[in-house]
Computed example of a mutant assay.
Amino acid sequence: MTKPKESPLAPPARRRLSWNDPGTRSIIYQILALLAVGGAVWFLVHNTLSNLSARNISTGFDFLSKEAGFAIGETPIAYSPASTYGRAITVGLLNTLRVALIGIVLATLLGTLIGIARLSSNWLIRKISSIYVEVMRNVPLLLQLFFWYAIISETLPGPRQALHPLPGVFVSNRGVQMPTVHGDGLLWLLVGFLVAVILSIIMAKWARKNQEKTGQIFPTGRWSMLLLLVLPVVMWFFSGTSMTLDVPELKGFNFAGGMTLSPEFAALLIGLVIYTAAFIAEVVRSGIQSVNRGQWEAAEALGLKRGQVLRLIVLPQALRVIIPPMTSQYLNITKNSSLAVAIGYPDIVSVINTTLNQTGQAIEGIMMIMAAYLTVSLSISVFMNWYNKRIALVER
């Protein structure tokens, strides 16, 4: 007599509370693991608080509202020694973000060019780019930072003999002095630039759809560049607001006025860009080589030039391979910026290091550094993952 089949809607069998049941054992193991982790965390926190209390060291973040009492060389926002520790840390964070964002853009451009050069049919260009990649990847970044800082601070002339490559721009061992613009017109320039970016995105989408329908290629790049250059100036002109140009001038032994890019910032930026570009070049090279050779041959058979094939056919397909490892390089350039403390650039690590030396709040300072880098890194990862999903092939 055959056993009747169980209904698919039958209630699941009850779990036996027995050590021989694998499900029961797994639950017990997980509970024990959580208790062990919780006990370790409790021990560390309790031991830390007890040691701090025995040494009469206060805990908490109340020190952020106290006067800092130290100067910072580069301040993207208003700051003085009379400002609070909280504002000093904000200055350090902005300095970190500034060098990281500029470094990401420049390293991407340089790394892409070198990655393409490694696949060049010209023997000399291919070998030079290969040597660059091998040398830069195998020399520690810290040594490169020391090298560039020594080059900038020791070989460049003093302020009185400063190089003058462009009108209003001076290059010396004190940094790069360049003109700045002040006034209400800056806001209208920024608004015009944002509007130009939005219009360029809309135009690019329209051009893509128009090309799919008619096959005609619209010169999106030229029109986008024209919008970015002309529209901000037009909006400022019709706004009626004023702007003043502050040009640096030599007064005494240093320059006054304008904007200064310090040797520390320049050395850190150059070192990060040149070092990371070598890794990005390999990412780009491998992404291009992942595209089937038949794509090149088919495009060339249609009469497209090599540059058009690379820009319109190969790179869009290679991006699907390039983006994931490129995310890691962007995270590396952000985290490697913490080496700025070695050459005196006032990033968040340097500022908090000075803060904890004055206040004794070492644990809070380290926690803020960890939280800052974690937040920035996760933000970059979220954006890159979103972009990676956006360009990924949709499977049917």
Rank of each mutant, 00 (worst) to 15 (best):
G92Y: 07
N292F: 06
W42S: 11
M225A: 13
P232D: 02
V191I: 15
F255N: 07
P81E: 03
H182S: 10
T220Q: 12
L17G: 01
G307D: 02
F253S: 12
L97D: 05
W223L: 12
M136I: 07
T96R: 05
Q30F: 14
L93M: 15
L101M: 12
V133A: 12
A71Q: 09
P159A: 07
N336D: 14
V41D: 04
P346I: 03
Y387F: 14
L245E: 13
E300K: 00
R396K: 13
G365W: 02
L101G: 08
R126T: 05
A54S: 14
G168F: 05
Q308M: 11
R293P: 00
G183E: 08
P76V: 03
S379C: 12
R126M: 08
I343L: 10
N388E: 15
G344K: 05
L145W: 11
R222H: 07
I31V: 14
E74I: 13
R285V: 06
V247R: 07
L141N: 03
P165D: 03
I27E: 12
L356K: 14
R16P: 00
I72E: 03
V45G: 03
N332L: 12
S377P: 02
L190I: 14
G365D: 01
L110W: 06
N56C: 01
Q358M: 12
L356P: 00
L331H: 07
R396V: 09
A266D: 01
R15S: 11
G365A: 01
Q358V: 00
R311E: 12
F61Q: 05
N173M: 04
Y275E: 08
M367Q: 08
S121A: 08
N336I: 06
K3Y: 13
N173G: 01
V230A: 13
I352L: 13
V195N: 04
N385V: 03
G103F: 02
I369C: 09
A207L: 02
A196F: 03
L97Q: 06
T354M: 08
Q295F: 07
K209R: 14
M370L: 15
G221Y: 02
W123P: 14
T359D: 03
Q144P: 03
F43H: 11
R25A: 09
T155S: 11
P76S: 01
A392Y: 07
L310Q: 08
G23A: 11
G39K: 01
L93F: 15
F265S: 05
T359L: 02
T108C: 07
L319Y: 13
R160V: 15
T155L: 14
Y345S: 03
T180D: 12
T375G: 11
P248V: 02
V133R: 08
N353I: 00
D21I: 01
K213P: 00
N254G: 11
G86F: 03
E74R: 12
G168P: 05
S121K: 08
E300T: 00
E364K: 02
L319H: 07
S328F: 05
I348E: 09
V341E: 15
L356S: 10
L166C: 06
P325Y: 04
A10K: 10
F61L: 14
L302V: 06
A299P: 00
T327R: 00
N138E: 04
T59P: 02
T375S: 14
A340G: 11
V139G: 04
T359N: 04
R16F: 09
L17N: 11
G86V: 04
I380W: 06
I89M: 11
W188E: 01
R16H: 10
F63P: 02
Q177E: 15
K3S: 09
I28N: 01
